[in-house]
Amino acid sequence: MPTDTLRPRSAPGVGGPYDDGPRSPRTVRLITAGRVLARSGAALSWVAVIVGALATIVPFLWMLGVAFRTNSDLYADPARLIPKHWTLHGVHAVVSQLPFGRLVVNTFVFAGGTTLLLLLFDSMTAFALARLKFRGSNVVFLLILATLMVPFQVTLVPVFLTLFHLGWLNSYQGLIVPRATSALGIFLLRQFFMQLPRELDDAARIDGANDFTLFWRIILPNAKPVLASLFIIQFAALWNDFLWPLVVTNNVDMQTLPAALTLFSSQSGVDHAALMAGAAISLSPLAVAFLVLQRWFVQSVATTGIK
């Protein structure tokens, strides 16, 4: 488990062998013309990697730029990244039409609450699937895996009707509960739990621990990194989900920020600043969190993925 992805000292072999590899006596002899070729190839590949990285970032910089420039400034020179004439009109158009504070609170309640509940339920299920023996575990696992393959649009209408019958439309529980488990989460956690040493269970059981203490006191504390990764992945996914909150709620006081901001991305007018401001605002909390926690973020996603 690469808990130290980004730290130089964690690379076990102290760098050397990865890119070009240590040169054995035999290969050294071959390095003449080939070396020049390889060198220029390496240089080219670095150029490609850097250009690619710019291509991932420039769109977001441009989005920010457009959010703060006037339309005529944009039309005059679309090749500029940085506005010549600054305006807060776009941000103002977005903020003035929405109950901003309420939306931010809702988004945190929805994305945060759902993610926490999801972590609990998913880890419980994953624990049972990975560490306990019970009849039907294969079927349960396969069924859970199969749900990963269902487009949301397929279940939208039936789910809506179910929520209606439960009386959960327009409520926090309606927003949160149906999303509080995820096949992906169970899948990832199960993989992780299976790799924890069995000795942990054995030692705990000798001390008289039952399944619940084992889960709560031993397995969960050992799973902190993977839980953190899952938290981030799910939190981002739920934060970005706009269709679900729009379907479950029908007044703006219950909606989430990205859901409410779709108003600005759906209009076909020519107000580019408002459109990009809306996009930027919905992205910015995640972006700030990501940049601040960037080391931890990148590394924790990595933790999840490898299993």
Partner: peptide
């Protein structure tokens, strides 16, 4: 007790994904 552990997820998946 494994069934207790899987109950919440299975219930949610059953009601909000499988049944739909």
């Amino acid at each position: 007790s494994a069934y207790l552990f899987i109950l919440p997820s299975v219930l949610l998946i059953g009601v909000f994904i499988a049944e739909p």
